[in-house]
Design a binder for these strands. Structure first.
Lengths: 246, 246
DNA sequence: GTGGAGCACTTGTCTGAACAAGTTGGCCTC
DNA sequence: GAGGCCAACTTGTTCAGACAAGTGCTCCAC
């Protein structure tokens, strides 16, 4: 936390948390906040823009900003790492590799991961749990250039993301997620301890490095009684988009 | 489209669409863009910040911005209105009210919609389709102050959002969405023309006005073979958050 | 050739100022 | 009392400049 605008954003978040500003109430004007924190109006605007993007407050020209949400659905709960997310919630994440094998990249793999023809990719089927309960089945395909580092990670490593960061310095920086629902197959049902045909929440995602290079793509299936997703959107900020089947 | 920074954002979007900048390539430096469009660096930064939030480009201090995604998953495809979204995709939206009735607000209704005890709310069950195929079943509860306007809308109105805007000037400005999966019940199955227990994608949402006042909350169930959702997130921008069951 | 130092380049942060545009509430008129 | 107009307030847009901080490349020494 170096930047002044981040400090101010955090101070405002805490104030909302503390209910200094309750849901539905109005935030002070920018000029007042600028004076209070001893910064220029631009810096305050940067701070409140962050909160607006997070969905905590609403903003429109001419009117004072309004507090939209109170409970801080821990937005630092990173989507990047299952283990980091679990720890942030005070839960313990477990992970276990079920199967792991090398295959030649299919046409779909090559498109999603920007690979050359004939590249060898690593397919990993991993079961993940929260406090001992299985909640997520991941079918992940890793790009050829990162697969060797993934291959030798022990089967019960709780955080692959952290492990890759420590070993190779790799950071998962961007992700594209497509969400739908599927019926559990026989394998899914057995591993997740649900009945066959019971509904699962599916997230297909592609993760890329800071440079924009795809690292992995994955078909993740969650037990919907254990995990859900939440998105905030506003008139000027459409993070979530509806899609039709291709 | 009045603001200069929006024009520049749109110009850059089109350039990425046209593949003037291909996926993985680098965007010109801010100073060069500023010179090209005859604006200050701050205005360019506002434009590229928009594209960064949309997930089209990646940004990090010291390095040139990189193009992350090419295909413009029409991000103006509003999440606010099913009908507007369908039209933007060149599809025809239909809607039909199945049941509609007044009830006294439950405790849950009062919390979600910020209502006083004893308020009367309107429950509407609405089936929506794309090009004649049923794809979405909406169970919506409208706040007492807007329900009278909703009550008299004809049963087959294709766009309730548009209708409320025309009739009352109401704008749906903010939304909080929680996404999971459920098995189709008997009623769901019959109306959506799927087998009972087949998986449905469920979105529970609360919509508010520009002033931050809740208008409606809804349990929407989509046929996952027809509709999915997509979200982009990045290291500094977590629109999507994972949640555990309460 | 390998590693490190250094440098040019690029993005991030912040200021202070000015004007545009939308909102809100009060006042005045009819 | 109802309606409309206006003025104060507040957020949105844009500018020009300065410095901080991270990246990536070249070049040099070993």
């Amino acid at each position: 936390m170096a930047a002044r605008h981040e400090e101010i954003a955090e101070a405002l978040r805490r104030a909302i948390d503390r209910e200094d500003y309750t849901v539905g109430s109005l935030l002070p004007p920018e000029t007042e906040l600028a004076a209070r924190y001893g910064v220029s109006r631009g810096t305050v605007r940067q701070a409140v823009a962050t909160l607006t993007a997070e969905g905590l407050i609403g903003s429109r020209q001419g009117a004072r900003r309004v507090v939209l949400a109170g409970r801080r659905s821990q937005s630092f709960a990173e989507l990047r790492s299952f283990a980091q997310w679990a720890r942030a919630m005070g839960r313990e994440a477990t992970g276990r590799v079920i199967t792991q094998e090398w295959r030649t990249a299919t046409a779909e793999d090559r498109v999603r991961l920007q690979l050359d023809p004939g590249a060898r990719v690593l397919h990993v089927l991993r079961l993940r749990g929260l406090d001992g309960q299985p909640v997520l089945l991941e079918r992940t395909v890793y790009a050829d250039w990162i697969s060797p580092a993934v291959e030798h990670i022990e089967a019960d490593c709780p955080s692959v993301t952290q492990r890759l960061l420590d070993d190779t310095g790799l950071v998962f920086a961007y992700g594209e997620h497509v969400i739908d629902a599927v019926a559990a197959g026989a394998r899914d049902a057995e591993l997740l301890a649900v009945r066959r045909t019971s509904p699962l929440l599916r997230v297909r995602r592609v993760t890329t490095t800071r440079e924009g290079r795809p690292v992995e793509w994955s078909d993740d299936r969650y037990r919907p009684d254990a995990v859900s997703f939440s998105v905030h959107n506003s008139i000027g900020n459409n993070a979530l988009a509806r899609k039709t089947a291709e």
